[in-house]
Amino acid sequence: MPVAIITGASKGLGRALAEALAARGWDLVLDARTAQVLKETAAAVAEHGTRVEALAGDVTDAAHRGALVAAARRLG
C-alpha cells in the first residue's frame, strides 16, 4: 500500500484528503496540533480499513517531523 503523511489532518482540507486517500487504500500518518480532534479523525479514517498513525505535534519542531517520517517508514 502507498503511504502518505498528512499535516493539518484534523479538519478542513487535511481531513478531506485523509478520507479520500484512505478510501483508495492508502495507509496514513496524520498530524495536527490538537490531539483530541486528531484522535477522532484517525478513528473515522481507520474505518476505511487502512492503517493509520496519528501524531499530535507541531511541524515546525524537527523532532516531530522526524517522528512523522519514522511512522511512515513503519507503515511501509
Score class of each variant (00 low, 15 high):
P2D: 10
V3A: 00
V3G: 04
A4R: 04
T7E: 01
G8S: 11
G8M: 02
G8C: 04
A9C: 07
A9G: 05
S10P: 01
R15H: 14
L17E: 11
L17A: 12
E19M: 15
E19D: 12
A20Y: 02
A20P: 09
L21P: 07
A22Y: 01
R24A: 06
G25W: 10
G25Y: 05
W26H: 13
W26Q: 11
L28H: 05
L28C: 11
V29Y: 02
L30K: 08
L30D: 07
R33G: 14
T34A: 15
Q36R: 15
E40R: 15
A42H: 14
A43P: 14
A43T: 15
A44Y: 08
V45I: 11
A46R: 14
H48A: 15
H48G: 15
H48Y: 13
G49L: 15
R51F: 05
R51P: 09
E53D: 14
E53R: 09
G57M: 00
G57Y: 02
D58I: 01
D58W: 00
T60N: 13
T60F: 06
D61P: 02
A62S: 10
A62C: 11
A63N: 13
A63W: 10
A63D: 13
A63L: 10
H64R: 10
G66Y: 05
A67R: 15
V69R: 03
A70I: 04
A72R: 02
A72M: 03
A72E: 09
A72T: 01
A72S: 10
R74F: 05
L75Q: 04
G76C: 03
